[in-house]
Computed example of a mutant assay.
Amino acid sequence: MTVFSSDRSVTSLCARFSRWWRDSTHTTAPEVLITAPAPPPLANLVLRREAPEPLRVPAMGDAFDFHVHPAYTWTGKGGSFSEFRERIDGYLGWAGHLVRDQSADLARRREPHRSHQLEQDLNAHFAGKSWPRTGEGPRFTVQVRVLPDQRIRERLRPYWEERISLECAHELATLRTRQAEELTSRWREVLCNLHDDPVTRHAARLTEKQFAQVFGEYAEERRRVPMELADLLRDALKGHHDLGLGPSEYTEAWDAAIRAHQRQYGLAVEPT
């Protein structure tokens, strides 16, 4: 005898068969792996800050102080720039103490009026160094300006005023000398070029008065030279007749007259 199951059992069996058939024939989409983007690199932050007040360090002898003006360059990473600036403001006091401590030994090796030399020494000492040496926080490098004590500056003022005055007077004298040399050379060239022109003396009157006067005196001097030479030769000849000199003696007298003329006008004396 055949026994049939209830309707509920048949329905359940059909439902499970339908699910099995659907699952076995359904194509499953491949799983897609999504990679999260890498976080952006931290931004490099740079801030230059000058100390609000100079640092005072004693000079040689401890009677006067140098005034050291630091300028810090801070670097760091991450965060906003405003937050970075606020952090730097909190570090300025510590940085000032460090720079003063580093400067003290060098400052005591310099006289109070040698601020420029101390500035060079300190900047050479700080070059290539940064602080703090360890840690992930902001770091700074530093450059300095150094000024002497105000009392030293007052003492140095008369010295520099006198030095500036002397240097200016020297430069003015040098300029006048150079201009005089150039002017003299130019006048010499002009006079030499114009001497052989027969109308030059008259044409000189058309120029400025000083030039006309100088050129006239120059031309008169050049005209007088041959006349004086003739007088010297006549005196030599007269001496020859008066003393009864022979031809040889006359030649020597004539030669002496020529040499006297050359010496008078600064001409080269021919060797005997």
Rank of each mutant, 00 (worst) to 15 (best):
T2H: 12
V3T: 03
S6Y: 00
D7S: 10
S9K: 12
V10P: 02
F17E: 13
R19M: 11
T25W: 06
T28F: 14
E31R: 05
A36P: 02
P37Y: 08
A38E: 15
P39M: 02
P41C: 01
A43G: 02
N44M: 08
L47N: 11
P52K: 11
L55M: 03
L55I: 14
A71W: 03
W74D: 12
K77D: 06
G79W: 02
G90A: 04
L92R: 08
G96N: 15
V99M: 14
V99W: 13
R100P: 00
D101R: 13
Q102M: 14
R108N: 08
E111N: 08
E111Q: 09
P112L: 01
R114H: 13
H116Y: 12
H116C: 04
L118N: 15
Q120I: 11
L122N: 05
N123C: 04
N123T: 08
A124I: 06
H125Q: 14
E136I: 01
G137T: 05
P138D: 07
R145T: 06
L147V: 10
P148H: 04
D149F: 03
Q150W: 04
E154W: 05
L156N: 03
P158C: 01
R163I: 00
I164V: 07
I164A: 14
I164S: 11
A169S: 09
H170S: 13
T177E: 03
R178V: 04
E181D: 14
E181S: 07
L183F: 04
S185Q: 13
S185K: 13
R186M: 10
L194I: 07
H195A: 13
V199F: 09
R201Y: 02
L206I: 01
E208T: 08
Q210P: 00
V214G: 00
E217C: 03
E220W: 11
R223M: 04
R224D: 02
P226M: 05
A230I: 09
L232W: 06
L233S: 00
L233F: 07
H240Q: 11
L243M: 08
L243P: 03
G246F: 00
T251A: 15
A253F: 09
R259G: 02
A260S: 12
H261M: 11
R263F: 06
Q264V: 01
Y265M: 00
G266W: 03
A268W: 00
V269A: 03
P271M: 02
T272V: 10
T272Y: 05
